[in-house]
C-alpha cells in the first residue's frame, strides 16, 4: 500500500501583487518505509509539498492521499486528527513549546492523543534515551543546545509512533557533528519502518537518502533512487 500518493498538485501564492507558483502539477508516490529527500533551491516548492503531505497546507488542485485518508477531502479538524495519529513533524527551528520541559514537550502529542500517564512516562523514557537525552528531561528548551533541542523535537515526532515523519530543513541550524548525529538517528528510525520525507537543500543530508526528488520553480524535475553515500555516525 502506498504511504503517500500525490496526484497533479498545483498551488500558487499571492505575494506583493505577484503570483508565485508553489507547486506545478506535481505527482509523486512514496511507499511505506522509504527515506526520501525533497531537494531544490529556495522557492522550489519542497516545503510547500512537504506541508501539503502533512495536511498543513491545501493545494489549489490535485489530490493527496496518506494511507487511506484523502487529505484534500478532510476538514480542518479531521486533518488535525490525521496529523495527530499518523504524522510526526520536525521543523528547522525546532519549534518546542518554551514553557514545557524536554519531557513535557515529548509527552505533549501523547497527552493530546489521550495516552494514559503510565504508558506515556514509559514511552518518554524510551525515546529520550533513544535520542541520547537521558538526564536532560526536566530542562526547558532555553536550557538546551540547538542540537539537543532538535533531538527533543525528533523525540516528540516519534514518541507517538507515527507512520510518517516529515522534516523541513532539520539540520539547517545545526553544526556538522549535530547534523550527522541527527541524520544517523533518522536512518536508524527509518530502518525500523518509519517513512521519512525530508525537505532540504543540504547536500550532506541528501547523502543519507535512498531516493532523491528534485524540485525547481514548483515542478518536479527528477525523481531518482540512489545508494546512500553518507556514513551513519
Amino acid at each position: 500500500m502506498s504511504s503517500i500518493r500525490c496526484n497533479d498538485l498545483c498551488k500558487t501564492f499571492e505575494q506583493g501583487g505577484e503570483t508565485i507558483v508553489g507547486l506545478d502539477h506535481v505527482s509523486l508516490s512514496i511507499e511505506e518505509g522509504e527515506f526520501v529527500c525533497l531537494s531544490g533551491p529556495s522557492g522550489s516548492g519542497k516545503t510547500t509539498l512537504l506541508n501539503a503531505m502533512g495536511g498543513l497546507d491545501t493545494p489549489d488542485s490535485g489530490r493527496i492521499q496518506v494511507g487511506d485518508a484523502v487529505l484534500t477531502d478532510l476538514s480542518r479538524g479531521q486533518l488535525a486528527d490525521m496529523r495527530l495519529q499518523n504524522v510526526g513533524f520536525v521543523f528547522q527551528a525546532y519549534n518546542l513549546v518554551p514553557v514545557l520541559s524536554a519531557r513535557e514537550n515529548v509527552e505533549f502529542v501523547m497527552q493530546v492523543q489521550g495516552v494514559d500517564a503510565r504508558q506515556r512516562s514509559q514511552r518518554v523514557q524510551e525515546v529520550l534515551a533513544e535520542v541520547g537525552l537521558e538526564g536532560l528531561e526536566s530542562r526547558l528548551p532555553a536550557e538546551l543546545s540547538g542540537g539537543q533541542q532538535q533531538r527533543v523535537a525528533v523525540a516528540r515526532a516519534i514518541a507517538s509512533k507515527p507512520k510518517l515523519v516529515l522534516a523541513d530543513e532539520p539540520t539547517a541550524n545545526l553544526d556538522t557533528r549535530s547534523a550527522a548525529q541527527l541524520m544517523g538517528l533518522f536512518v536508524s528510525l527509518n530502518q525500523r519502518g518509519i517513512t521519512f520525507v525530508i525537505a532540504t537543500h543540504d547536500s550532506r543530508v541528501m547523502g543519507y537518502a535512498r531516493r532523491l526528488v528534485k524540485l525547481q520553480d514548483g515542478r518536479m524535475i527528477s525523481d531518482e533512487a540512489q545508494e546512500p553515500t553518507a556514513m551513519v555516525v
Binding site: 480542518r76 488535525a80 495519529q85 521543523f91 519549534n95 505533549f108 493530546v112 516528540r156
Partner: peptide, 9 residues
C-alpha cells in the same frame, strides 16, 4: 505548532 502537531481548533 500545536495545530501542526494535531491539536484540533
Amino acid at each position: 505548532l500545536m495545530q501542526a502537531l494535531g491539536m484540533r481548533p
